[in-house]
């Protein structure tokens, strides 16, 4: 798991930033006046309200909890991995059954059973891949949450330096904040694997996402006077918000796209079984599931006779006391 800026880290740096801005304004002789509500009279505790507004800025970037995202990622990766293991341990048996049914049994019911073995195998692969895509979404979101937090922290830190620089006229300190391009980050995350290769996600796990490259840009926080420093902070904060929004929107679009592709994907296993596979239904016949050793002319009537007897046994069982009770008839009350 990676390190990230905690909620406390962000709240603290935002508080420090608000305090630094207040000090810079006061030193520069700029009055701090904050209306109690938009268009209203100034609030009596302008300083605290001013500082709190920076903490509120920081809260936007605390809107995702990396620990919870990691847990969701891990659950989905684990289930995807379990589906993969199930597919590989049972795949051979299903292939074998498909081959036996196709080679030695004839008729449309035999073909449907053989096809069903193939459909089941395909179904397990599809479920594995879509579950791992859910993990991929969470892996990308995890990195997005971490970078959004780090970027806001960098922005606040650089703004504090800009405030100090403005107050002390220190020219030698860096007032650029490095922030991640979060929309690009998400594009990288969702393109790490396409659906055919998403099985490769298992193994390297979350490191696939924590190790991917992220493009950073500099936001300059210079300003010759206190209001200009705050203006450049507000511009940087807005850019970062837009970048965070763009990352989340990009990921939402990708998830919705995968959702609709998944809905359109043919999944014959989800269809009800053909009625002619049911021996108690009217459509079953021996020649729909026949073997060359037992020609339908001679063996078909024996199968029909047994079907009739089974139906009669079931009817009789249904009429018995136990059968009535099992069927939901509680008898005389």
């Amino acid at each position: 798991m990676a390190d990230w800026k905690t909620n406390e880290d962000l709240a603290l740096i935002a508080h420090r930033l608000g305090t630094a801005v207040v000090a810079m304004y006061e030193k520069g002789g700029f009055p701090i006046s904050v209306p109690a509500y938009p268009g209203g009279a100034p609030t009596p505790d302008a300083r605290q309200t001013f500082v709190n507004s920076f903490v509120e800025d920081a809260e936007d970037f605390m809107s995702l909890e990396p620990r919870k995202i990691y847990d969701e990622y891990a659950r989905m990766e684990q289930e995807g991995s379990a589906l993969r293991d199930l597919g590989s341990t049972q795949g051979g048996a299903l292939e074998n059954a498909n081959a036996r049914l196709a080679a030695n049994w004839h008729g449309d019911a035999a073909e449907a059973f053989a096809a069903q073995m193939f459909h089941i195998q395909r179904f397990i692969d599809q479920q594995r891949d879509r579950t791992l895509q859910a993990a991929q979404a969470m892996g990308t979101l995890y990195r997005l949450a971490i970078e959004a937090r780090r970027s806001y922290h960098n922005l606040a830190e650089a703004t504090i330096v800009a405030c100090e620089k403005e107050m002390a006229d220190q020219d030698d300190r860096d007032t650029k904040a490095q922030v991640g391009m979060l929309g690009e980050l998400v594009k990288t995350g969702v393109n790490l694997f396409d659906v055919k290769k998403v099985g490769e996600l298992v193994g390297k796990g979350i490191d696939n996402f924590t190790e991917m490259g992220v493009t950073m840009v500099d936001i300059a926080l210079d300003g010759s006077e206190a209001p200009a420093v705050v203006e450049s902070y507000i511009r940087g904060r807005n850019e970062l918000r837009e970048s965070f929004d763009s990352g989340l929107t990009e990921l939402t679009k990708w998830i919705k796209l995968q959702d609709s592709l998944y809905r359109e994907e043919p999944m014959p296993i989800l269809e009800p079984l053909p009625a002619y596979l049911d021996i108690s239904g009217p459509d079953f016949r021996y020649d729909r599931f026949e073997h060359e050793d037992r020609p339908p002319d001679s063996y078909g009537p024996r199968v029909e006779q047994e079907r009739a007897e089974i139906a009669e046994e079931e009817r009789t069982a249904g009429d018995s006391e136990i059968g009535r009770r099992l069927g939901g008839d509680k008898g005389p009350v």
């Binding site: 909620n7 809260e59 936007d60 970037f61 605390m62 809107s63 995702l64 909890e65 919870k68 995202i69 969701e72 989905m76 479920q127 879509r130 579950t131 895509q133 859910a134 979404a137 969470m138 979101l141 918000r241 965070f244 929004d245 989340l248 929107t249 990921l251 939402t252 998830i255 919705k256 995968q258 959702d259 998944y262 809905r263």
Partner: peptide, 25 residues
């Protein structure tokens, strides 16, 4: 929910899309 203490609207949209996808699976 993977949401933190903040209330940035686009987070709810991504959560909604993800949850619908996981439900479908």
């Amino acid at each position: 929910s993977v949401a933190g203490p903040g209330r940035f609207d686009p987070v709810y949209r991504v959560e909604g899309a993800y949850q619908a996808f996981a439900d479908l699976i």
